[in-house]
Amino acid sequence: MSQWNINNIVNELQAARNEWRTKQKSLKDFGGRELPSKEEIKKIMSDLCGILFPMRLGPHDLRQQSENYYIAHTLEKTLYALHEQVSLNLTYDHKYRKNAGNLEESVQTAQEIVKTFAEQLPALRRILDTDVIAAFEGDPAARSVDEVLLCYPGILALIYHRVAHEFYKQGLSLLARLIAEIAHSKTGIDIHPGAQVDQGFFIDHGTGVVIGETCIIGKNVRIYQAVTLGAKRFEVDEEGHLQKEYARHPIVEDNVVIYAGATILGRITIGEGAVIGGNVWITKSVAPNSAVSQSSATKSQV
């Protein structure tokens, strides 16, 4: 007999699972395995990085002469793997979420979703190029665009975010969140896949950055570490449950700079060209071309 009382622990764990499943009355057939795989998504994202930037994020022995061959081979493999994960997400939505539609029809859309995503890859590459240039031009410590692409966590976070956002737009929230959380664990940068981020976005240093689901970020915005673009409060319904489908995060217009540690909360607007100083707390809209420091922010929020 095991000195660890294994059988008792196994039985108690089963009882705990059964209690949990019984409480989740809104989920039918809870406990199935029709879920996207985090490990498979990690592999897919690694391959997508190589497809988008083959000579920098692809295999170390790749040469330009064989770029197209590598991309074609890797893309074929990756899209099949992605198709499986999309299908799992659609199956999960059908079984465990309300108003998910017909299962057969949902699964049939997986190929169309993956095809649409694949056709977006050139556009994704072009907008990511603007992010790389923004980082190179925005950081005096950057010696080359290669250094930016290989070393800057903000660029890796944006590659993952721009991919995740495409799936979020297709309603694949679980798949999108998994991609976002893989990036979060790699970089310390937490961007919800629902956030709308325009071109030329630069996250310098990046650790501790949080960008909420309904954020809208304009062109050529620059932010630093520990910036939060979050919600001021959480609305609830008559039964006290959190509301989920409403705009609750900031709008940041074009050419804004937000320095380290700034916290910007609620559905407010940071006007075009504004400069937000470090460690400020902002819950009211900021006019275009304004400069907000700790002292001015304290006075305006009192």
Results as ranks from 00 to 15, higher is better:
186 K>S: 12
9 I>A: 14
53 F>C: 09
27 L>N: 07
14 Q>P: 01
69 Y>M: 06
281 W>H: 04
153 P>Q: 09
129 D>E: 13
69 Y>V: 12
36 P>I: 01
257 V>N: 10
70 Y>M: 02
276 I>Y: 08
272 E>R: 14
257 V>P: 01
228 T>V: 02
19 E>W: 05
193 P>R: 02
199 Q>Y: 05
159 I>N: 01
43 K>C: 07
61 D>W: 04
202 F>W: 05
272 E>D: 00
19 E>S: 15
87 S>Y: 00
184 H>P: 02
12 E>M: 10
125 R>L: 08
176 A>H: 09
71 I>H: 06
37 S>A: 11
227 V>C: 05
3 Q>W: 07
206 G>Q: 09
28 K>G: 09
156 L>S: 04
190 D>Y: 00
60 H>L: 11
242 L>W: 01
148 V>L: 02
184 H>K: 05
100 A>S: 08
245 E>S: 08
90 L>G: 02
193 P>C: 01
189 I>L: 00
273 G>I: 03
204 D>V: 08
121 L>F: 03
165 H>P: 00
261 G>R: 05
290 S>Y: 04
255 N>V: 00
111 Q>H: 12
148 V>C: 09
130 T>G: 09
256 V>P: 00
156 L>I: 00
134 A>Q: 00
216 I>E: 12
53 F>M: 10
53 F>R: 03
41 I>L: 05
193 P>S: 00
46 S>M: 07
136 F>M: 01
125 R>C: 05
151 C>F: 04
6 I>E: 13
51 I>K: 01
56 R>T: 13
156 L>K: 04
103 L>V: 12
147 E>T: 04
286 V>Y: 01
206 G>W: 07
129 D>V: 11
83 H>T: 15
16 A>D: 14
141 A>S: 13
24 Q>N: 14
114 V>Y: 06
29 D>N: 14
224 Y>I: 02
26 S>D: 15
39 E>S: 15
262 A>E: 11
95 K>L: 01
93 D>F: 05
283 T>S: 05
7 N>H: 09
191 I>D: 09
119 E>A: 15
123 A>S: 14
62 L>A: 03
213 E>P: 11
143 R>K: 15
144 S>K: 03
231 A>Y: 06
113 I>Y: 06
71 I>T: 11
166 E>D: 07
41 I>P: 00
275 V>R: 08
18 N>S: 15
243 Q>N: 12
109 T>Q: 10
153 P>A: 11
132 V>K: 05
209 V>I: 07
255 N>Y: 02
274 A>V: 02
254 D>W: 07
100 A>N: 01
213 E>C: 11
2 S>T: 14
301 Q>W: 02
176 A>Y: 07
188 G>S: 10
71 I>N: 06
129 D>Q: 13
99 N>H: 05
42 K>D: 12
166 E>K: 13
46 S>K: 14
49 C>Q: 11
104 E>V: 15
65 Q>M: 07
187 T>L: 08
92 Y>R: 03
79 L>Y: 01
217 I>L: 13
28 K>L: 11
124 L>C: 00
181 E>P: 01
64 Q>I: 10
293 S>Q: 03
236 V>R: 07
251 I>T: 14
38 K>V: 01
133 I>N: 02
109 T>Y: 06
138 G>N: 07
258 I>N: 06
7 N>G: 04
284 K>S: 11
242 L>S: 13
169 K>V: 10
248 R>K: 10
125 R>M: 00
96 Y>F: 15
18 N>C: 07
167 F>G: 00
273 G>M: 11
184 H>R: 03
